[in-house]
Computed example of a mutant assay.
Amino acid sequence: MTLSELWYTRCPVPTPVGLAAQLGLLEKTVSEAGVALKSIIDSPDRNVRQSHFNHTLEWSFRHGGNVPPIRARSEGRQTRLVGITWTDEFQALITLPTSGIRSVEDLVGRRVGIPKRPEGIVDFMRATALKGLVSALSLEGLSVDDVERVDVEIAQSVLADQEGQSLFGLKRRQSFGEEAAALLRGEVDAIFVKGTAGIAAANFIGAVPVVEFGFHPDPKIRINSGSPRILTVDQKLADERPDLVARLIGAIHQASAWAERHPEETRRFVAREAGATEEQVLAANGADVHRHLGLSLDPELVDAVGHYKDFLRDWGFLETDFSVADWVDHRPWALLDGRAVA
């Protein structure tokens, strides 16, 4: 079978794949191989878009938050992990000024809102909020048993976040709206937020931080759904066209190198990708975001993915356990390096 179309998707967050797409490097690289590039996440077809979350499409690759591809792998989806990016971002527990909460210790016995979506697609925002809560409480030797966790029910599937009049012409609905509303209604005392969307939500409702830890010196505190982000490909693409995967990695490396040389333009591109302002990107990702859009399979990054996979397993988000080391595929990197591949 001759490959004619390659599907790809990325999350609306800082990734070198998103930058490579905006720079035209992805399309150029794929077209030079005689293949058309098609976007999963921008498809009007919900059945196509769901592959962003469950990795069902053959001849596809994905770069973004790690919960959906980890869950897909645990369900038996045949994919390979071919690259990892670590771009730190704002992570915090926030509250209202009137709550009386000023520190992590003040959370003891208080209500922390945790989003909960309908069954069907792995609830990655719930996993994200739980890991954020665990990390924040651990800073003061506390655990989740020291607070009251309150489910914030979200009626619609995440697939609906790109549909409907409530988007007001935008591509997608902003995150943390339901959690912020629960905070304003007094149903919870604190919520977890992250990234540019989290900063925007906190700013909009006049919240104050209980604790911020997105740039904490201990990487295990920072590990979450977006730290690190992973590049995965379906098994057929990995096995039958490792040369094309190597080409893709090469294009991503070009984008990473371009970012290093163009800090202001990179911030602008990241803002466009995230549907945020440059000011929000600066606040959420720091002044050096252009230096943190690389891609590798360094052992410490693989270990970080394994650490979060274990968290997801322990909290019931995985169908079955699996080995992250066995998931990693070094073959396209060997091709890039000019070494023989078994």
Rank of each mutant, 00 (worst) to 15 (best):
M1V: 09
T2D: 01
L3D: 09
E5C: 13
E5R: 14
L6H: 10
L6F: 08
W7S: 12
W7G: 04
Y8H: 11
Y8S: 03
T9E: 09
P12N: 14
V13N: 07
P14W: 02
P14G: 08
V17Y: 15
G18C: 03
G18S: 10
L19D: 05
L19M: 03
L19R: 10
A20V: 09
A20N: 09
A21C: 01
A21W: 10
L23W: 11
G24N: 08
L25A: 12
L25T: 15
L26W: 08
T29M: 14
V30A: 11
S31K: 12
E32K: 13
E32A: 09
A33S: 15
A33Q: 15
A33N: 14
G34A: 09
G34T: 12
V35S: 00
A36N: 13
A36P: 01
L37V: 08
L37H: 13
K38Y: 15
K38D: 07
K38N: 15
S39C: 13
S39M: 06
S39E: 13
I40P: 01
I40R: 01
I41F: 02
I41G: 02
I41P: 00
D42H: 06
D42C: 03
D42G: 04
S43E: 06
S43G: 05
R46I: 09
R46N: 01
V48E: 08
R49E: 09
H52D: 08
F53Y: 10
F53H: 07
N54I: 04
N54Y: 02
H55T: 05
H55N: 02
H55L: 00
T56F: 08
E58S: 05
E58V: 08
W59Y: 15
S60I: 05
F61G: 06
R62F: 03
H63K: 10
G64S: 13
G65F: 00
G65N: 06
G65Q: 04
P68G: 03
P68Y: 01
P69R: 14
P69S: 11
P69C: 11
A72S: 12
R73C: 11
R73H: 14
S74V: 00
S74L: 11
E75R: 10
E75G: 07
Q78V: 06
T79R: 09
T79F: 05
T79Q: 13
T79K: 11
L81H: 07
G83K: 12
G83V: 10
